[in-house]
Design a protein around this nucleic acid. Sequence first.
DNA 1: CGGTATCCCTCTCGATACTG
DNA 2: CAGTATCGAGAGGGATACCG
Lengths: 127, 127
Amino acid sequence: MVTTQSEPVYRGNPYEASCPTRRILDRVGDRWTVLVVGILGHGDARFSELRRSIEGISQKMLTQTLRGLERDGLVRRTVYPEVPVRVEYALTAAGRTLLEPLRALQEWSIEHLGVVSASQEAYDRAH
Amino acid sequence: MVTTQSEPVYRGNPYEASCPTRRILDRVGDRWTVLVVGILGHGDARFSELRRSIEGISQKMLTQTLRGLERDGLVRRTVYPEVPVRVEYALTAAGRTLLEPLRALQEWSIEHLGVVSASQEAYDRAH
DNA sequence: CGGTATCCCTCTCGATACTG
DNA sequence: CAGTATCGAGAGGGATACCG
């Protein structure tokens, strides 16, 4: 937050359709993406490890999520041509920088779970 | 938020289906929710102001998003029975606390837009 | 103005089957 | 093991019409 002059940041209205925040959030906000990045933050993992770690994810969605993250340059996929084949997934340097803001959001969730749940119950009783 | 004893924080595996982070992210990760909260962070707004501010949102989705946020206790809805009726939306105290982690994510998006886009193009050329 | 109700279509996602 | 391919159900969300 020091940028005095000429910040190379996006200058448009942050709420218009083409806004980068929105494009990124479309990926980052994805429920599976957040979980995959979170797990890889604890260390590299194989495909099947990820699948076991994330309750309820289908093979299709895990593949799709990993491909998207790889395409964004946030995850690196390494194939070891053994028999049977072994594939390792790891966060790239850029991917690791995403951990902090994601962690902030997770902490917010945990801290506010109580009030949010209470509010929901109150709302549902009144409506 | 003083509870010294028996902190009501969630203790389970952050990646299981019932995890609060996941429940919150289902809401927060929603593309419209983030935008609405972001705008309300700049000040209270009427329904039609929000609608004009968010390019591409339909009336239905704006209503749905606002109702969800109201139910979560993050947004307060105030009806002024004038003619024609005026409705103001404002962040609650809890809603305002969400601004910071959201802002962190937005900054991340802006800072990494370049590398992500470049990575995508490289990936697409190679596949 | 600020909604609700309805229709309808798309597009995601899960389930299943098959492969290098 | 780590995928790809295909199909079908269903939720998400837009368009439209109407209301207090």
